[in-house]
Structures are given as structure tokens and as C-alpha cells.
């Protein structure tokens, strides 16, 4: 039987994996997986600065700051690409390594003022979820704080996707049509990037800045191999995200290693299984029947 602690860790893992996966669906369909990777590295200085300014991690300042720095990163990449005529992959590489380096230096500099260290950056502290309880002013124990933070972000992401579903889909699959019917591709591009940054920051504590990339990319990529329908892909991503959290936890317990690392490992294992059994076959099929995703695009609006 699952202990309460195990349940809380798996729940926290799922609460992190689900919003990452949902946003990841759009990232990989837009061929922006590496921009997502860049943002997840680049928010590090934002986290440290917000930490220094506000003194705690779950403030609204931090989420707002993250959203801004995500947009800043995206802007910088496009700026170097457009104004400097630097190829996109290099623009991404230059930008995120620079910001990440600033983050690491800040952490080392203010190690005594910031409750963060390099281990936390690398693999988070999901194992200690149940240690930090949220206590209300009259002393009632409300349960682990992380669960509330992750839960709130999950809700925000779901609301974002539900409210902007049509716009996200149209700008993803048919940017030309999108601008023809008056939907700003740039606006939704930046909104999505802001959402990615906010989710990264919320997940940062649990799984660290780099492994969050695995949660952004691996479950949606696995789901993408299984279906051609965006809605099915998102549902599958959620299921895979929960499975990753569950199996990752037990793998970590079994091997006595970091839970976040084990979650990323399991995400890779799931992808590998699906890839070996359906991935290769699917490719042939896709070449015959074109991708049917635009069925969600409204005919006239």
C-alpha cells in the first residue's frame, strides 16, 4: 500500500507533469521544443532575483517575474535572429547559456541569502514535498505547500488552454489563416512562452530547471506517436504524465536516486517503448494520410 508521503510525492509529480505536458503539446507541434528548453534554463536568474527581492519562493512576484523573463528570452532570441541575422539555433544557444550562467553565479554569490543550491537547480526537491506544510494564520495544517502551488499553476494552464484553444490551434497549424481572420500570431506566441515560463518556475522547486524539459517534451512526443488528433494527444499526454510520476517515484525508491532524474528516465522509457512498437509504423501511415489536426480549425468565424 502507498504511504501518505509516497502519495503526496506522486501527486506533486503529476501536478507538475500535467501542465508541462499540455503546454509541451503546443511546443512540439510548433517546432519550438528547443525554445522551451531555452526558457526553462533562462528563468534561473529570474528565480534567484525574485528570491532576493521577496525573500520567499511562492510569491506572485516570482511567477510574474518568470513570465516576464520568459518573454524577454523569446524576444532576445528573435532580436538576434532578425536584427543580427544570427541563425535561430545559435541565437537560442547563446541566449539561454548566458542567462543560465548569470543564474548560477547569483546562486553561488548569495548562497547564504537564497535557499537554493546547485542540486536544487539540477533536480529539485520533490522528495521533501511533505516536509514543508502550509499553515494558515490560525495554525491549521493545510497540507504540503508545493501541492497548492503546483495545483494553482495546473488550473491556470488549463484555463489558459481552454480560453485560448481556438487561437492556439489556429496559430499553431495555420499562421497565415490566423492572421487572415485577425488572430495575432505574435501575441499567442508570446502568451504561450509566458505560460511556459510560469510553469517552469512553479515546477522548478520540485524537479529542477533542466529536468522540467523532459516533462515538457517527452510525454507529448510519446502521445504524438500514438495519435494524429490534438485532443487525443493532450489526453494521452496527461495519462503519460501521471504514469511517469508514479513509476518514476518507485524507480527512485528502488535505486535510491533522485526522483526527478528517475521521472525523466521513465519518460524516456515510455517514449522508447512506444517508439519501438508504433513510432516506426506510424511514419509510413502518416505519409499516406495527411495530418488531420486542422479539423479543429473553425470553418468561418
Amino acid at each position: 500500500m502507498m504511504t501518505k508521503e509516497a502519495f503526496q510525492i506522486i501527486l506533486a509529480g503529476s501536478l507538475v507533469a500535467i501542465p508541462c505536458g499540455l503546454l509541451g503539446c503546443f511546443l512540439i507541434l510548433r517546432k519550438m521544443a528547443m525554445v522551451g528548453d531555452a526558457i526553462s534554463h533562462a528563468v534561473l536568474p529570474g528565480i534567484v532575483i525574485a528570491f532576493l527581492l521577496s525573500g520567499n519562493r511562492d510569491s506572485l512576484t516570482m511567477l510574474l517575474g518568470a513570465g516576464l523573463i520568459g518573454i524577454f528570452t523569446t524576444f532576445l532570441i528573435e532580436f538576434f535572429h532578425r536584427m543580427g541575422k544570427l541563425q535561430t539555433d545559435a541565437a537560442i544557444g547563446v541566449t539561454f547559456t548566458w542567462l543560465f550562467a548569470i543564474g548560477v553565479i547569483l546562486i553561488d554569490q548569495f548562497a547564504d541569502q537564497v535557499d537554493l543550491d546547485q542540486d536544487c537547480v539540477l533536480y529539485g526537491e520533490i522528495a521533501y514535498v511533505s516536509l514543508e506544510q502550509w499553515t494558515t494564520s490560525d495554525g491549521t495544517m493545510m497540507g504540503p505547500r508545493t501541492l497548492y502551488v503546483a495545483g494553482t499553476v495546473l488550473l491556470l494552464v488549463i484555463v489558459f488552454i481552454l480560453m485560448g484553444y481556438k487561437e492556439l490551434v489556429v496559430t499553431t497549424f495555420d499562421p497565415v489563416y490566423a492572421s487572415a481572420i485577425g488572430i495575432s500570431t505574435a501575441l499567442w506566441h508570446y502568451l504561450l512562452m509566458a505560460a511556459v515560463s510560469v510553469t517552469t518556475v512553479a515546477s522548478f522547486e520540485s524537479v529542477g530547471a533542466i529536468l522540467v524539459v523532459a516533462l515538457f517534451i517527452a510525454p507529448p512526443a510519446t502521445a504524438y506517436l500514438l495519435t494524429e488528433n490534438l485532443k487525443h494527444m493532450m489526453v494521452l499526454t496527461v495519462v503519460i504524465g501521471v504514469l511517469v510520476s508514479l513509476t518514476g517515484y518507485y524507480l527512485a525508491v528502488l535505486l535510491d536516486g533522485a526522483i526527478a532524474g528517475a521521472m525523466a528516465t521513465m519518460a524516456g522509457v515510455f517514449f522508447l517503448i512506444v517508439f519501438l512498437f508504433v513510432g516506426v509504423r506510424k511514419k509510413r501511415k502518416v505519409q499516406k494520410t495527411l495530418l488531420t489536426a486542422p479539423e479543429v480549425i473553425p470553418k468561418h468565424d
Binding site: M34, D37, A214, I217, A258, G261, A264, T265, G268
Partner: peptide, 18 residues
Amino acid sequence: IGLILSVFFGVGILLLTI
């Protein structure tokens, strides 16, 4: 690229902590 990068790194972190 993103998939391999993050999964391999995850495996590495798992091994490192072990």
C-alpha cells in the same frame, strides 16, 4: 534533440545521485 537531451540528462542525474 530536446527529448534526448533531457532524458539522457535525467538518467545521468539519477545515476549521479545513486
